[in-house]
Design a protein around this nucleic acid. Sequence first.
DNA 1: TTACATATGTCAATCGGTTGTCATATAATT
DNA 2: AATTATATGACAACCGATTGACATATGTAA
Lengths: 325, 325
Amino acid sequence: MKPNIKDIARLAGVSSTTVSRVLNNRGYISIQTREKVQKAIKKLNYHPNDLARSLYHKHTYFIGLIFPTTANPFFGELVSDIENECASQGYKVFLCNSLGRADKEIKYLNMLQRNQVDGIIVGAHNRNIPEYRQANLPIVAIDRYLSNKIPVISSDNFLGGKLATNWLLEQGCRNIIHICGPHELETPANRRRDGYEEVMRSAGKKPIIYELAEMLPDNRTDVVRRVFTEQPEVDGIFASDDLIAATVLSESKKYRRLNCNHIKVVGYDGTETVRTCLPQLTTIEQPIHQIAWEAVRILLSQINGEFQSSDNEILLPIKLVVGTP
Amino acid sequence: MKPNIKDIARLAGVSSTTVSRVLNNRGYISIQTREKVQKAIKKLNYHPNDLARSLYHKHTYFIGLIFPTTANPFFGELVSDIENECASQGYKVFLCNSLGRADKEIKYLNMLQRNQVDGIIVGAHNRNIPEYRQANLPIVAIDRYLSNKIPVISSDNFLGGKLATNWLLEQGCRNIIHICGPHELETPANRRRDGYEEVMRSAGKKPIIYELAEMLPDNRTDVVRRVFTEQPEVDGIFASDDLIAATVLSESKKYRRLNCNHIKVVGYDGTETVRTCLPQLTTIEQPIHQIAWEAVRILLSQINGEFQSSDNEILLPIKLVVGTP
DNA sequence: TTACATATGTCAATCGGTTGTCATATAATT
DNA sequence: AATTATATGACAACCGATTGACATATGTAA
């Protein structure tokens, strides 16, 4: 059986109050007693039960992370950065992969509340989920509006869309198409599309948009192929994430064999992984470290009751990274 | 303040024992009472405190995941799959990114024990850490020997190394070099290198191995460049993971401008992400879903006291995936 | 009428710590 | 000698639930 504080007290020949005092550095403790206790702790390989502690203190140092999936390199990097930042501040994270399913998301939210998390960081992409508003809990959203009380961290999606489209124009593209992920209401990421539309209209061109039904690999290929067959004149594509852009590149290679068109592509996210695999891809780089850092900072400020309403909406800068030739 | 079971009892006009009976479906409860209680739960947005429950039952349904980082697509996909499988069995996961640092790993192990996890899945890559043996806890390791009592899940690294090297030989490569990650003791992943060495020796060739000092992007580029300058005759590279392989590809593109060598490359892992970005890369595909599934299955069998010693070492099949032309 | 199933309540112990209050004892200071 | 700082223990309440034992109602079936 796992030892408890009484076992330690017995072995060290002291009271459990004294053990608690050693563990928490409170009150007077002689060096001899401290050492006796620490020796007993080592000997029995004792680990104080943090659940009991948390129960008493009503503070768990748990944080819930709800994201679509760490299998996507953008979320994989973001979650890794968030977890690091949390760990360095003494918080532990529950990972929840919602897989784009609203029902999973609601179940996770419920689970996190039952487990008394101190706060939640949400980057999942589902339709409006009212449960977030009722959850009377510190929450931070990444690239998503949950309610007007829940702070949002975004990077400058609108500017990103504009920069991407402008770059394609500068490269001499005449027929630029935008391919984006499944459309959701009130997602700041939709502003990428707005940026694209604005630049297109300013240039006197008609925006053409293709939308994925779901965020699946097969789906990406299907849509990209449809673009190539339905839009034979296309010479520029702005993809709303790098994996779609990668699919465009590989499909266009096959296509190019039949057709000598050159197609310029711009992606979105600029993760380390995709930059390593496809350095030739031009992309809009999101400041992942900064997003993670701000999300944790704002969540902890809520948890510690120091939230500034100026932090209710954070817009971080993006950067166009031109691919290596 | 958050409501507790007594608040629900008071509002529903019943005793807290009755509320507990409703929550746990025990004993006799009339439909009317059940409805009164459920209405009170909804009204107060009550979430039973699972920490208190866990404390009493000595069972948390928590599982700790210790991995290098979800920023690496292999671990990102693996962690996502593991989390999914856990969630579908009612378990919640703590995510721990050790970042290849043994000190972090030990701290995480400690933290997980203090938080009474029911078990741990370790995929981190550090030197021998004796703390795992003392931790009197169900543990499963992925591609790593922790102790003879801790079951290991691996894919067939030795065969992978052989298949990769053989393929390069079949492609007509004469000077095949192996680049691998930082070398650790007793890691089954080192068998990839053994497979390479065996095939090379059988072919009467001398194995040449370059090793990364650390798993960092800059490091990869440095080593790859060193290979190109120090081994001008190289025409085949077996990289021990896809990101190294990707770096070889992109560096060789630059190199090819100065030198008309063609270099064939084989990577390792075959993640969805890298397959999407670099479908032309030949690679050894690890069965990520299966690894995740087996890891969870074996961990839960330990937790439920149904562990079969035949599961002490699981070897899963790998597959050579030839890149698209 | 007796027996049993159904329905609910009271009460206390338990899980593993934390913390405040009091008591007590030794040692160091004034 | 009186005061104060140091060191430890005993005890109980508390955090929020679970559970078993026991009491006490009904309602229903034998």
